Amino acid sequence: MKWLKGYQDHEVSLIGDYQLTVGRSPCIQMLYEFGIKSTFLPNTNDPNITSDYISHSSTISFNIPSCAKNQKLKGLNITFKYTVNKEKHPWPIFAKISNKTKNRDWIYNPTVFGKPEPGKVTIWLSYWETGNLLDNGDQINVSFIMENLEVRECGVRLVYADVDENMENIMEFEETLLGDLSAFKLSTETYYLCRRDFFKSMEVDGPTPSWFRDSVGYKVDYTEIQGWRKTGRFQKL
């Protein structure tokens, strides 16, 4: 993602976690959470933004193909382009990766997200280092869960590394996709990657929305879920 430095002086409106957004420069930065790198950009046709699989809906499915003998799958670059329903307040975005073959789900809610200007498109770029969590032939579904946002396009690009290349250590926390996520487990092999107590806020505002229950699953006991203490961090591009 070194090419993103060319956008470091561009600006995007961020909403979400007040402690991370108040008084912060509107210039584009990278967010690190759970070993996931992500950033929000104004719409662009930059040639560096490419996808192996593209959908114009909020979900995309594919099977992990075989790779060259001297390579291994390292992670997924995920792109989500969206606009806001100007008549309603935008709801936080959730990205969900499901390994249907292994019956594992990872649901990520970033602490902040980009709010498009009226009539404009915002791009959410994220890189998920998956390592050995995904194998050749696995059936994968990537979906985006949101309200009051309109999908323009979503895409996935497979990222490979040489077999003898060490996986990138992008965070010092153990709480990465390849580390210990037990504190974020909702049920067997389902992980809700969120730094704020989203469930408590919904209890104050009303019952858990049906669209979120449908996406996460009724097998989750929402009454026992607690918020988590650590916050994400920003870093300049």
Results as ranks from 00 to 15, higher is better:
123 I>F: 08
51 S>E: 11
15 I>Q: 01
76 L>E: 01
108 Y>P: 07
39 T>N: 11
127 Y>H: 14
38 S>D: 14
35 G>N: 09
93 I>W: 03
18 Y>Q: 11
130 T>I: 14
96 K>D: 15
96 K>Y: 01
59 T>K: 12
29 Q>R: 12
109 N>F: 04
91 W>D: 14
24 R>D: 09
43 N>M: 09
129 E>I: 06
113 F>R: 02
126 S>C: 15
16 G>R: 04
21 T>P: 02
85 N>S: 10
101 T>H: 08
83 T>M: 10
46 D>V: 14
48 N>G: 13
30 M>T: 01
78 I>W: 08
73 L>Q: 10
86 K>Q: 15
40 F>K: 03
114 G>K: 00
27 C>T: 07
48 N>Q: 04
49 I>R: 03
127 Y>V: 05
19 Q>W: 14
44 T>Q: 07
31 L>M: 13
33 E>L: 04
110 P>Y: 03
29 Q>H: 05
39 T>I: 14
80 F>C: 13
91 W>S: 09
124 W>I: 11
86 K>D: 05
14 L>T: 01
128 W>A: 06
105 D>W: 00
95 A>I: 09
91 W>E: 12
60 I>C: 03
66 S>E: 14
14 L>K: 00
118 P>H: 00
40 F>L: 12
80 F>H: 13
101 T>M: 08
127 Y>I: 06
106 W>A: 02
74 K>P: 02
100 K>D: 11
41 L>W: 12
129 E>Q: 10
59 T>W: 02
124 W>N: 07
58 S>Q: 12
72 K>G: 05
71 Q>S: 09
14 L>C: 06
116 P>G: 05
79 T>I: 13
14 L>I: 05
93 I>G: 05
31 L>K: 06
32 Y>A: 05
21 T>N: 07
13 S>I: 12
71 Q>T: 09
95 A>W: 03
32 Y>G: 00
30 M>R: 04
56 H>K: 15
43 N>A: 15
62 F>W: 11
129 E>A: 00
29 Q>T: 04
92 P>R: 04
86 K>I: 06
116 P>R: 04
125 L>D: 00
55 S>R: 03
57 S>F: 11
80 F>N: 13
90 P>K: 10
68 A>S: 15
102 K>W: 09
119 G>Q: 00
55 S>W: 10
65 P>A: 02
110 P>N: 02
86 K>V: 04
120 K>Y: 00
112 V>M: 05
112 V>Y: 02
107 I>K: 08
99 N>T: 14
109 N>G: 00
53 Y>W: 09
55 S>Q: 10
16 G>S: 08
131 G>N: 11
77 N>R: 13
20 L>Q: 04
66 S>D: 13
25 S>F: 11
95 A>E: 09
95 A>M: 14
127 Y>T: 12
20 L>E: 04
119 G>L: 00
127 Y>E: 09
100 K>I: 06
54 I>L: 15
84 V>G: 06
100 K>Y: 08
103 N>F: 11
127 Y>F: 14
91 W>T: 11
103 N>R: 14
106 W>V: 03
45 N>A: 09
107 I>H: 02
102 K>L: 15
114 G>L: 03
15 I>T: 06
20 L>P: 02
73 L>E: 09
125 L>N: 01
17 D>Y: 05
22 V>M: 12
